[in-house]
């Protein structure tokens, strides 16, 4: 099953996504609290897909996406995870190569569907 790296600055959101994705049979490669950690963990863990929060301290999800795509893996499968009202930011992310996005609050089946679509299952 695909390995997922979960990136979000709130522990609550990470736990929620972990629960949903683990329950759907995905392996949780790791969890990162900000964009910087996400870049480092992507390099070492080589996950199949990343759920990336947009607004985070130190390095935003957009910057992390850019860095992963340009310096580590141009084919990285990254799904942006954001709040209602940040859709414009996500459109920027899509232009930068994000494969999909989910908007909080989300429902488990929708998240699973989106991640599976991105992973190609």
């Amino acid at each position: 099953m695909a390995k997922v790296l979960i990136v979000d600055d709130t522990a609550f959101m990470r736990k929620l996504l972990k629960n949903i994705l683990f329950g759907a049979g995905f392996d949780i490669a790791g969890e990162a609290e900000n964009g910087q950690q996400a870049v480092e963990m992507y390099r070492t863990l080589k996950p199949d897909v990343v759920t990336m929060d947009v607004v985070m301290p130190e390095m935003t999800g957009i910057d992390a996406l850019k860095q992963i795509k340009t310096t580590i893996d141009k084919d990285a499968k990254i799904v942006m995870c954001t709040a209602i009202g940040q859709e414009n930011i996500v459109k920027t992310a899509i232009k930068l190569g994000a494969r999909g996005y989910i908007i909080k609050p989300f429902q488990a089946p929708k998240v699973i569907e989106e991640i599976k679509k991105v992973v190609g299952e």
Binding site: L16, I20, V111
Partner: peptide, 19 residues
């Protein structure tokens, strides 16, 4: 607020308790 979000996401009682 967290509990409400978790219920919306479709988590069951045990998962909510755990998270």
């Amino acid at each position: 607020m967290e509990i409400l979000t978790l219920i919306y996401s479709g988590l069951d009682f045990a998962s909510v308790e755990n998270i």
